[in-house]
């Protein structure tokens, strides 16, 4: 190998590394610095060591928000992935109808999250009279989805699925498109059932897109702010106050940025742990 070849990968990686180092890792380091200080009203007051972490990890509100995030992320991840995968398979063929339907499914993904969640809230609200149009005929006209902790969480999960299934669909569709169609035909000739072909051809060949989709969705759901902020406001009774919403409130409403950053780093660590577990699971069940 020539000497230039040795440096080639680094030359290719240089722009990305420079950008990430200055605009992501730099602020992250400042954030870590903040997390060790008492930062009130955006101004650093005093060095406090681990006190912010201690405080965060013993706060019942934060522990509640971690649990809420776990429930939400798990529910959203499973539902979004399954629905997205089903959509990808359903809309795989290249007919005009399927292409039009892909665009249709993408619209919730394309509208600003803020507005999407505002519209969903409007639809879910019993008082607006819209949810009554669906629930009324089912004899549930007096049900308020958003006023009950359990159903409010379900609504939040629905919001995630409604918006992000399209993302999973696109990712998996791109993967499906890279599977040589010949494989399926050959298997069909050999008499393999649709389920067999899915298990033996589609799934194994989609390993990488599946992992990427799952990891991306997981990180997205753990870090999502807009859905709970707009749809449920974290309520009722903190039932949907996710950890990132809590972090946002600590930083930008309570103005205790040190604690907010400590929590952000806890979330960051939790994210890494979750992704690690996910990747391990995949590695154990087969080569990536």
């Amino acid at each position: 190998m020539r000497r230039a070849e040795l440096w080639m990968p680094w030359r290719l990686l240089a722009p990305a590394i420079v950008l990430e180092a200055t605009l992501v890792l730099g602020p992250l380091l400042i954030g870590i610095w903040y997390s060790l200080h008492n930062v009130r009203f955006f101004q650093i007051r005093a060095y406090v060591g681990w006190a912010n972490y201690q405080r965060i990890l013993t706060s019942p509100d934060v522990l509640n928000s971690l649990w809420v995030t776990f429930v939400f992320s798990l529910g959203a991840l499973v539902l979004t992935f399954v629905v997205g995968f089903a959509l990808a398979l359903w809309l795989e063929r290249d007919g005009r109808g399927a292409t039009a339907m892909r665009a249709v499914v993408l619209v919730p993904y394309m509208i600003a999250m803020l507005v999407g969640s505002m519209l969903l809230k409007w639809v879910f609200a019993q008082e607006s009279g819209l949810s009554g149009m669906v629930l009324g005929p089912l004899g549930m006209g007096d049900v308020s989805i958003l006023a009950d902790p359990g159903t409010a969480m379900a609504a939040l999960v629905f919001n995630a699925m409604w918006r992000d299934s399209a993302f999973a669909m696109i990712m998996l569709l791109a993967g499906l498109k890279s599977i040589p169609p010949g494989l399926h035909l050959a298997a069909r000739v050999d008499g393999a059932s649709a389920w067999m072909r899915f298990r033996r051809i589609t799934l194994p060949l989609l390993r990488v897109p599946i992992v990427i989709t799952l990891v991306r969705l997981l990180i997205h759901f753990v870090n999502i702010l807009t859905f709970p902020l707009i749809l449920t406001g974290g309520g009722p009774g903190n039932a949907t106050e996710t950890v990132v919403l809590k972090m946002f409130r600590l930083g930008f409403q309570d103005h205790v940025l040190g604690q907010a950053n400590a929590l952000a780093l806890v979330v960051f660590a939790a994210n890494l742990a979750l992704v690690g577990v996910l990747l391990l699971l995949f590695r154990r069940t087969g080569r990536l």
């Binding site: 200055t22 605009l23 992501v24 730099g26 954030g31 990891v215 990132v244 972090m247 952000a264 960051f268």
Partner: peptide, 27 residues
């Protein structure tokens, strides 16, 4: 360093952007 970079890529993806806003503003 390839493996490390792969891991770092995922790590950078996992940072909650909201927590970067204030330092980024200063930067």
């Amino acid at each position: 360093g390839r493996g490390t970079l792969m891991a770092l890529t995922v790590a950078v993806m996992s940072i909650p952007v909201a927590s970067l806003l204030v330092p980024t503003f200063t930067l």
